[in-house]
Design a protein around this nucleic acid. Structure first.
Length: 425
RNA sequence: GGUGGGGUGCGAGAGUGGCCGAUUCGGCGCGCCUGGAGAGCGCGUAGGCGGGUAACACCGCCUCGUGGGUUCAAAUCCCACCCCCACCGCCA
């Protein structure tokens, strides 16, 4: 949960950070007000409890009428406590809720702005391909090659679902395998996580006081929700645990299907695989000492870049502006890959330093010689298959409607070098 | 889904209404001892919150799976839930 002491000691600093994220700085004043009320009540309650504790020892030693008198006396104290304690509990809950609403504060290097158009491109790699023919988008390509089928998926599941088949499946698994091999070589531990988790885990990882029902699928009749990313289940993995410092940095490579309701995005990106309810993803997740998280952030981005470079996909790295940065993140880079079908760069990866935001909310701590501290957590997309498929299909298409397999994926494609029509798979 | 057993500190494990935030053992840290190590001996080893302080110190409150209840007083009694283990049923 957000650091109350920081709010008390430096409210203006917190307000400024919240403003930069284009959230409401009144959060600070609400929290401070509740905090004041809480401390008043707390002092009363604690006085009575101290009374009680003292009396409890005495009563144990007293006998006869003296004992009866003391008990009668303490009955009154107990009654008073019984009236006060529910009030304290209520204020505690209010304060918790208020602090859960706080977003993480942005790092000073985060560019100002509130719109994705204000994100700042930092560097470009590769050249968008020049086609001597009219390029198709991934949906046309995939449909003609019979490797993507959204029409039947719509029949079965509705909009934003898809069937992958044949070489499409090999391609998605090849992307995952390439990414995993690179991460294992870097020392990451592969993890397959639960796909359904308790709501508080998602709330802990993604922010807010309540589950974001616009985005999260809940399981009816269960206290479970489907993960939107393995970042959530990985962050939850060490919740309420105190880790030994020498285990850091802890680097995990999570594999999971990711489920997103996309309830707020009707009409946006409706075509093809760009915005779908379910996709397979290889996710990097790091837990680091507070002092090293910014280095780790750059390291994770460099791995994301290396993956795109191995795939030969043109991309750019973008610094996300304050207002476009998610609640848990102190700083986010997006990697946008060239997508000929959109004639634009489209987000394929993201990389965030959540500093101690998730650690505080999930109770992940680190033991070190001076005491225990909250570690920092970071996450980054290695491969999000649906969007990676878009980029590969569209960039590697050929004039005859076939798609060349990127060199780096060939070893994972059962020898397939070109995805064409009529291949029996 | 059913029946039974169980969740205590870094780990094991005691404690069944009051001087129990918690015996003991192990681990870990420090010290003594040693040429050095081991053994042995001694000491110390949770977190959160509030008050207080320049910062310490210090004082108080809370935490024995979670949340309620009974009681002057709960690790201990009652209720609900969560989780783990065993067996039965079902099943990839």
């Amino acid at each position: 949960m957000f650091d109350l002491k920081l709010v008390r000691d430096n409210p203006e600093f917190v307000r400024a950070g919240i403003r930069k994220k284009h959230r409401d700085p009144a959060l600070v004043d609400a929290a401070l007000d509740i905090d004041r009320r809480r401390r008043e009540l707390l002092q009363d309650v604690e006085r009575y409890r101290a009374d009680q504790n003292r009396a409890s020892g005495e009563i144990a030693r007293l006998q006869g009428p003296e004992k009866a008198d003391r008990i009668a006396q303490m009955r009154e104290v107990a009654a008073r406590l019984k009236a006060l304690e529910p009030m304290l509990k209520e204020v505690d809950a209010e304060l918790t809720r208020a602090l859960l609403e706080f977003p993480n504060l942005p790092h000073e290097s985060v560019p100002p702005g509130n719109d994705e158009r204000e994100n700042v491109p930092l560097r470009y790699w590769g050249e968008p391909p020049q086609f001597q023919f009219q390029p198709l988008d991934h949906l046309d390509l995939g449909t003609r090659l019979d490797i993507i089928d959204v029409e039947r998926a719509a029949k079965v599941s509705g909009a934003r679902f898809y069937y992958l088949r044949g070489a499409g499946v090999l391609l998605e698994q090849a992307l995952m395998r390439l990414g995993m091999d690179m991460l294992v070589a870097e020392g990451f531990t592969p993890v397959i996580t639960p796909f359904a988790v308790r709501p508080e885990i998602i709330i802990g990882a993604w922010g807010g006081a309540d589950l974001d029902v616009q985005q999260v699928y809940q399981l009816e009749g269960e206290r479970l929700a489907l993960i939107g990313t393995s970042e959530q289940s990985l962050a939850g993995m060490y919740s309420d645990e105190t880790l030994d410092e020498h285990r850091l940095p802890l680097r995990l490579a999570g594999i999971s299907w990711n489920f997103r309701r996309e309830a707020g995005s009707y009409g946006r990106d409706v075509r093809g695989l760009y915005r779908v309810h379910q996709f397979d993803k290889l996710e990097m997740f790091s837990i680091t000492a507070p002092e090293t998280s910014w280095d780790e952030h750059e390291y994770l981005v460099s791995l994301e870049e290396r993956i795109l470079q191995r795939l030969g996909l043109p991309y750019r790295v973008v610094a996300i502006c304050g207002g476009d940065t998610s609640a848990p993140s102190a700083k986010t880079y997006d990697l946008e890959t060239w997508m000929p079908g959109r004639e634009a760069y489209g987000e394929t990866q993201s990389c965030s330093n959540c500093t101690d935001f998730q650690a505080r909310r999930l109770g992940i701590r680190v033991r070190r010689s001076g005491g225990t501290v909250y570690p920092h957590t970071l996450n980054g997309t290695a491969i999000a298959t649906s969007r990676a498929l878009i980029a590969v299909l569209e960039n590697y298409q050929q004039g005859d409607g076939t798609v060349r397999v990127p060199e780096a994926l060939v070893p994972y494609m059962n020898g397939l070098r070109v995805i064409g029509v009529g291949r029996r798979l």
